[in-house]
Structures are given as C-alpha cells and as structure tokens.
Design a protein around this nucleic acid. Structure first.
Lengths: 174, 174, 174, 174
DNA sequence: GATGAATGAGAATTCATTCAT
DNA sequence: AATGAATGAATTCTCATTCAT
C-alpha cells in the first residue's frame, strides 16, 4: 500500500462518514487527498470498490476490540463492556463508526450481518448469567448500544459524553 | 395543494427515506409520482426545497403526538410515553422517521433543534420526580429513545418489536 | 389594450433592453409586470411576438421625431438635427433605443432597414448642400450618430452628455 | 492548453459574437468544437468562466495593438491612430470585437474599465496638442470610435469601409 | 504507480408554451 | 380577459469512469 493509497482511503472515510457516500464525488476525494482522480480507479476499480476498501480497513481496526471483550473471563463484565462500547471508541475511529451508522439507513448498503457477532457474545453471556429470555435481553441491550452510539458519534458541544456514561453506570453497576 | 403536489411530496418522502436524499434523482421522483419533472421545481423551487417541504409535512403530523404527551397529568407516565415513543409510531409514519434519522448522519442537514422540545418535556418531568440530575437522566433516556428508534425503524424480520417493548417494560414498570 | 397588456409591454421593453432578449424569461416578465405568465401568450402568441409588439410600440413613438426633422426647411439644420439625434432622446425612450442597439449585435434580429429612412434624409440634405459625395458623407454621419447613441445610451456617471454635445457643436457650428 | 481547449475557445468566440452569449448553448459549442460538453466545464468551470476565458484571450491579442500606438512619437499621429482603430482591425479579430460591443449592451457584463487605457492615451496626446478641454475632446473622439466600430463590425455588403475611412481622412488630415 | 485530458450518461434546473377553469 | 397548474424539451452542470502518456 503506497502513501497515496492510504491518503485516498483516509480521505474517503472522512468524507463518506461526514457527508454520506452519494454526496461525495470521486473528484472531491481526489482533490482532498491530493491525488489524481484516475488513481482512485486504478487502485479500487470503482467508487463502490473504494467504499468496500474503506469498510474493510475499518473492520480490521475494530475486530481486535471485539476479540478483547470475548476474552474477558467475567460474563457480567462482558455485558457491561459491550453496553459501554460506544463510549470507548477512540476519536480517531469516529469516522468509521459514523460511516457504519449512516450506511445503516440506506437500503442499498444495509448489512444486517455486521452486528451479529456482537449480539452472539451478548446472548452467550446473558445465558451464563441465567437470564430467562437472553435473546430478548440481548436485543434490548443492542438497542441501547445503538442509542449510545448515536449520541456519542453525533454529539455536538452540548452533550457531555463522560457525564452520560457516569449516569449509565449508576443505573447498572452497584 | 393540488393532487400532484401531494403525490410529489409523498413519493419524495418514500424515496428519500429508503435510499437517501442524494441517491434519489428528481427524475425518479417525477416518474414514480406520475408528474413531469418540471413540476417539482415549479412547486418547490429546488431539490432541497422539496426536502424541506417533506420535512415540514412530517413535522406537522408529528407535533400532535408530542402535544398529547404533554397533556398527560402523571410525570412518570410522561417519561414512560417518551421512552416508548418509537414503539408507538404508526407504520404509515415510518418513512418520515427514517428520513429524520438518516439525515441526522449527514452534516449538511443535521438539525440539532428537532429533539429539543422532547428533551425539555423529559427534564421537566424528571425534575418533578425529584431526580438528582434531571438533565443527565434526560440525556440518557434520549439516548435510549434513539436506540429504540434505530431498532424499530430498521427492524428486519428477525427482530420482534413487541417482544422488545415487553422486555423494556419489565425493567421499568413494576 | 388593457392595463395588463401595457404593463407586459413596458416591463418587457425595460428588461429586454437592459439584459437582452434571450437573457429574460417570460416568467420574469410576468412577475415584474404583475400578471400571470399565460397572459403573455394569450396576447402576444409567443416570446418573439412580444418582442415584435415591443418594437412596434417603440417605432410608433419614434416616427414623429423623424417626421418633424423632415419638416425643417433648412438643409443644414436637418443634417445637424440628425447628427444630434442621440442627445435629444428623452430619458423615457432610452429603453427602446437601447433595445434597438443591443439587437443590432445579434444576427438573429439584425434589421438593416431601420436606419434607412434616416440616411435617406441625410443624403437628400447633403446633396442640396452640394456635397461632392453625399452618400459617403451620409455614411460618415450615420457612423457618428451610432457612436453618440452608444455613448449617450450607455453613459455611466463619468460621462457628461451635455458637455459632449457642446464640444460637438463647437466643431460643426460656427 | 490542449488542442481541444483552443477549439472550445475559438468556437465559443465565434458563436458568442454572432448570436450573443445567452443565445448560444454549451451543447452547440461542444458540437461545433467537436468535443464533449463536459469538457467545457472541466476546463472553464461554467459558461461564464468560458466567456471570461474568451475575453481574456481576446484582450491578449489586442493589447499589443494599443502598445504600438503608445510608441508613436507624434501626438497627432497617436490621436489619428486611435480614431482609425476600427478600420485597422484584422478580419480575424472581428469576432472578438463584436463580442466586446455586444456585451456592452448587457447590464450583466458591462465593463466600463475596458476603454479607459485608450482614453488615457487620447487625453495625454490632446493635452500635448494644447487642446483647451482635452478631456471633453477625448470623449468626443471615443464616441466617434464607437460609431466607426459599430459600422465596421456590423457592415453588411452595402457599406464600403475603405470609402468611409477615406471620407473621414479628408476631414481630419490636410 | 501516477497523471490529467477526455467522455457520455445522467443530474438538477429553466423555459416557452398549453390548457382547463 | 386572466389565472395558475402542468408539460416536455432544452440547458447548464456533475460525475463516475477510461485511456494515452
């Protein structure tokens, strides 16, 4: 991967996540990345190819996160870790997550499978914790997580994320 | 408002909410609505004008909903009503809400002010309920609501909304 | 001729003369004239028909001017009157003259015949004044007149028309 | 500047000057120039950008002409050169000059500054020639020049430019 | 690998014109 | 006579993509 390839990927991620896939032209990406427009197509075939590459790059950075949660020995801690996931996303990973969430809302790109592994971890942990309906409980927590993600990723100056996490913890951790 | 104006608005709402604003051409809207493309511009000036009209129409249908919540005499019931809001959206209003949520993720259209009235109701109710930090609590509930909305509006066959609401209620209502 | 017909004609004259025929839409004319767009076509068939009507109206106001010059008994005075024509256009007739001159420059509308009567008067007067080559002399004066018209009709604040006429007279009248 | 860029500029000049800016579509320009329509916008941003480029190209060809006049040692000769300017425009430069003069009549594009350098030369020369009111005299000559330009550039078969110049010279040169 | 000129399809928008009321 | 809704063709402009260098 050359410097220019990386520049394209990062610029595309930034722009796609802020403006949306269709709102960003390859011309703009090229300009912002400081490369020729042709180069995008040489490396990624077409615009969708570029999107896929961007997503792939993001997933590779995210998977270790999930892997580290699986390794937690305590089931309750695992549930908590997942619930708090959005609060622990590093600022540098915001663009990727914003992209994931913005694509969710477009039929063309909706990918149901992405959250499946996370839910599986949840169901397993909740079963271990003897929840009567682990699946329903997992769905509820997944919903919470989507809500926290929405809040954290779209937060404008007014919302204090730290405070939100604190309030959440008061509820769930004694 | 003529029939054709209404047809344009409804078609645009449907398409924008499913595919996203930029992914839908005015040509497609015109075809689906059974009108000439020029008519869109005659009535709504430009594509963004059409989007605004669509949003306006949606807001007018939604405001009564919020108004009816304000009138609930019991503070706790008001909080509950807001938390459960996403579960009580009628199917016919899904497109509008999907549009709202999908636009949230695009810088160009982000509108911070939309959720403010809802949060205000929450803060007031929670203060009446003697919550120590009503504002933080309200933010948390708003986050929940965003999560439920995401789940409900994007639900694929696998998720059972009724079940989710039931699980939620078990937690919050004794 | 109804009030609205007059309003359309006058607005069209004003706009055509300032911006050019093709740069002005019938929609704009209708708006500025305070009438519906359809009315333009009811009265004048199409946009070119409107232009013709505008020109006709202008010519009718201008012809008396030329007629009064013909009646001058003194040949020299007649020549002078024509040469000074642009300086004696009333402000209210500027739009019409600007329109004439702007149309001159567009192949589609060029009308060679318009200035012919004026030149004929000149040739006759100059012949009476025993000019060797009355026709050439007339062409020269017609050129002057075009120049004065250009200056007078397009004058911006910096040019003082009165002063220009004075300078001209010093040259030609002893 | 590639061949196609040049082709666009020259075709645009030709068409704009004959039909007027608004009467010529970019589609027509592209066809006549033998290029794709998109290329016009890639090189010149938009239609007005193309017009500006056309004007710039014209100015660059014209400036040397003025420069050569300034270098004439004799003040009277300089005045004469300017007065006769329209007669010495090469046929190949007609389109550019026609464009200049046709744009004069459109508010949107009127550019007062263009003739300023020429007038400055005149004022200086006339002052050297001890004219009482050099400025007024210069304005008068500028008017003549506009008139000659109008005649020369719009001449139809009937007008003999050479004859006109001859008649003019008889008046001003002994 | 990289550039930038070039394309053609399609996007948003404008416009003259028609027609029912 | 007058309106205003509606149209369809044309116009300006954008965009993903190709290709020669």
């Amino acid at each position: 991967m050359t410097d220019k390839q990386v520049a394209i990927l990062q610029t595309a991620l930034e722009l796609f996540s802020n403006k949306g896939f269709y709102a960003v032209s390859t011309n703009l990406i090229a300009k912002e990345a400081g490369v020729s427009e042709g180069l995008i197509f040489r490396h990624f075939q077409n615009k969708v190819g570029l999107l896929n590459a961007v997503m792939q790059m993001g997933k590779e950075k995210v998977e270790p996160l999930l892997a580290s949660i699986i390794e937690l020995p305590d089931s309750a801690k695992r549930v908590q870790a997942i619930m708090e996931l959005p609060f622990h996303i590093g600022e540098q990973d915001y663009p990727f997550w914003r992209l994931i969430y913005s694509l969710k809302w477009q039929n063309d790109f909706y990918d149901d499978e992405m959250s499946k592994p996370t839910k599986d971890i949840l169901v397993k942990a909740l079963t271990e914790l003897k929840y009567a309906d682990a699946d329903a409980e997992a769905d509820l927590i997944m919903s919470y997580v989507d809500g926290f993600a929405t809040t954290v990723l779209l937060k404008r100056d007014s919302i204090n994320t730290a405070k939100l996490l604190e309030t959440l913890r008061k509820k769930y951790i004694q």
